[in-house]
Amino acid sequence: MAADTVIEVEGLRTCFGETCIHDGVNLSVRRGEVLGIVGGSGTGKSVLLREIIMLHEPTAGTIRLFGEETGDLDEAAADRLRRRMGVMFQHGALFSSLTVLENVMVPLREQLRLPPALMESVAALKIALAGLPADAGPKFPRQLSGGMLKRAAVARALALDPELLFLDEPSAGLDPVSANALDELILQLRDSLGLTVVMVTHDLDSLWRVSDRVAFLGEKKVIGLGSMETLSRSEHPLISTYFQGPRGRAAKEHAWAGR
């Protein structure tokens, strides 16, 4: 395995009872890249993500994170791996009984030994990094708007300065301004922290802007892998209908205009 491969998925198969949604998925993610996972509804994008972050066990196949096979890890080793990844869930999954600041402090408190005052400063820093105003810190998740929730979730995912960041539908439900700001944030973090980012998204604009490579899921496997330009020229019927629709073309023109 190449030294700069962070995630390696091999021969992955996922079945729920009789129906299989993955059969022979192969994918590798390089260090420092932003990889988008796309595909129609029900092609198992989120399930793939959940399998990589060790929330769901695949039916067959192997997943290697930082060179370690996740299938046969003991709890301690799995925890060590988890410390190196941050996950932003689709609906934020912020703990509703805690304020935003406390939410960000949860991973810090669990994993590091720091005095409370310092921990608060670090959490406040992450909140600022995620682009939230400082007065969002003492608020509860229910008092935040959708866009702010996503940012707070990013702040929590970034709490431990992970090497690997997973984003499930980061821009879904965001206004264009917030979505752009989030894209910008992802790029900045990638450049300055050397983050590897894996994101599941339907947002074509954001794919054009931030992703280095895109994996297209369909027919139970990865049927296309490459930059957006390569994929958008693909002849495969599933991929071309996905990217050649009016939205796809608009996003592409938008992306070219922005260069």
Binding site: A124, L125, I127, A128, A134, D135
Partner: peptide, 10 residues
């Protein structure tokens, strides 16, 4: 990022 935000008063 820190410049943009003023620390919140407790």
């Amino acid at each position: 990022r820190l410049g943009e935000s003023v620390p919140a008063a407790p």
